[in-house]
């Protein structure tokens, strides 16, 4: 396979803050297109000063709705994350895998109806 294409998050979203869903979607759109073309992709978080799960759900979590775990593992890399942010990303990824594996029951789980108040 060819050399990895680097996506610099701060360049693409124009900010060191990875906090909004819209910016996460921007990253997702670029990465999804490249992965579909079979490219290797490295997402660089260099110079990012703040990162939250909401952003990562959009940017990376969503990929598991389009690609298999194998594809993501083979074609995608991340760099420039501190160890605690890597942990955050791991939580997001595990959550996304579970979500797409069993979407309907995940949403409906255990919710009780309560007709008698409010």
């Amino acid at each position: 396979m060819s050399e990895s294409i680097k996506i610099k998050v701060t360049d693409l979203i124009g900010s060191p803050l990875c906090i909004s869903a819209e910016d996460g979607q921007k990253i997702f759109d670029k990465v999804e297109k490249l992965l579909k073309e079979g490219k290797l992709v490295t997402i660089s978080f260099e110079n990012v000063t703040m990162l939250i799960s909401l952003f990562l759900n959009m940017a990376i979590g969503q990929l598991y709705g389009s690609f298999s775990e194998d594809t993501v593992r083979t074609q995608l890399k991340v760099e420039g994350l501190s160890s605690d942010d890597r942990e955050l990303l791991k939580r997001v990824v595990d959550n996304a895998k579970k979500y797409y594996a069993n979407k309907a029951s995940y949403d409906d789980a255990w919710l009780e109806e309560d007709e008698n108040e409010e």
Binding site: I52, S53, L54, N57, M58, G61, Q62, Y64, G65, L88, R91, V92, N95, A96, Y99, Y100, K103
Partner: peptide
């Protein structure tokens, strides 16, 4: 939409 989410409050 069909994105995963719902981690914020758990975190």
């Amino acid at each position: 939409g069909s994105q995963p989410g719902g981690l914020g409050l758990k975190l």
